[in-house]
Computed example of a mutant assay.
Amino acid sequence: MQDSEVIIERRGAAGIIRLNRPRALNSLTLAMIRAIAEALDGFARDADVAIVVATGEGERGFCAGGDIRALHESARAGDGLAGTFWREEFRLNHQIAVYPKPYVALMDGITMGGGVGLSAHGRHRIVTERTRLAMPETGIGYVPDVGATWLLPKAPGEAGTWLGLTGLDIGAADAIHAGLADVQIASSRLGEVIDALSTLPRGGSSIDVDTALQAFAEPRGESRLRQNVAVIDRALCFESVEEILAALGREEGEFAAETRRVLLTRSPTSLKLALHLLRAGRRSASLAECLGRELGACLQMLHNPDFFEGIRAAVIDKDRNPKWSPASVEAVKAQTVEKFLKPAEPPLLL
């Protein structure tokens, strides 16, 4: 159904999932989450499906994340929709991570927040010259979620810390450097890629998929994160945001200065909680553990003034001038962070 928010189709051996809200940059609704999960279940049972491909309609983005306006309205109303959305979204992220068949994500254009959750947990992640990837949550009074606290600590050095705290967007080369993508392919050839994957034999393996993708692969460009690895690793290795800001202040060069300027615009509460969750993710044994921890924090976000203020400034009034409370990282007490660490009930994954 071409007017559906998610279009499910079969092409040869490929099961294809198309996010179909192009005017909203394919941002996710609860109905979309449920449709994707149902499609994955069906394709997993279908012996004639060798591979699943996830893509976004339109030329601007794969998926810009969850529909934060809807989450904001739900939180205001206290109707429980936001909590249900996060719970089902995180289960979908885990479903993708353990999916029994090769899962290919075409991360063309904007791929942020929930879009990273739909792609970076898959086995085969394709980026293009148009990819702009980010976990921008600290800029809206929220925290990196969808399993980002499992993915980002696995990036080289402190690159994941930089991504999770700053929320800045990166391109294809940086996404591959950070371990969030595997191969770069020109956006103009993605249709050919789907055609090639659809001809894979029944029971095709991930090796078959890799071989098919390599026929289209392009050399990656220069990674800004790789170029600044020494600064990133020196300045973002600390256990407190205050120490990170101080270390950035001691560094020379525009990259460190820009990073520090950006951090000072983010929600101080979000920065401290995000750093705690990223460090906890580094010590965790599984994605499921991280998702469960993230869900607990997200549910507490429904009582966090910065969450409402950040979304107001970003998508409602669009003044891009949030007034955070507290207004500085020094004013965020340890007890404030601790209240976000309450386990979700019931647990996310039994």
Rank of each mutant, 00 (worst) to 15 (best):
A97C: 10
G171A: 04
D169V: 00
R261M: 13
S74T: 01
P22D: 11
Q184H: 02
E258R: 12
E89Q: 14
E88N: 11
M135G: 00
A44W: 05
L168C: 11
E137D: 14
R283P: 04
A181G: 05
V337T: 13
L299C: 04
R234N: 08
A327C: 08
A105G: 06
R189S: 14
P201H: 12
G65V: 08
R234T: 04
G109T: 04
Q335G: 12
S328A: 13
R224F: 09
G164R: 02
N228R: 11
E252S: 14
P22K: 05
T29R: 15
G157H: 04
F308M: 15
L165S: 06
Q184D: 00
K272N: 05
W324P: 01
I207A: 14
R320G: 14
A172P: 11
R282Y: 01
Q95A: 11
S223C: 08
T149D: 15
A181W: 00
A75V: 08
A288F: 04
R266N: 15
P22L: 06
E88W: 11
L245P: 09
G171S: 06
R11M: 05
L271K: 02
L299P: 02
L165I: 06
G58E: 03
R226V: 12
N321W: 09
T265G: 04
L92K: 09
G117M: 11
G78K: 12
G160H: 03
T265C: 11
A280N: 07
A297Q: 07
E218D: 11
F307E: 07
R260L: 05
G15M: 09
I170F: 07
L277R: 01
R282L: 09
A77C: 04
E129I: 01
L28S: 07
I126K: 02
G80A: 07
K333A: 15
I232W: 05
L197M: 12
N93T: 15
R10F: 04
R260Y: 03
F85V: 08
D169E: 14
V315D: 08
T111K: 04
G160Y: 03
Y99Q: 01
P156F: 03
E330D: 15
N304W: 12
L245C: 04
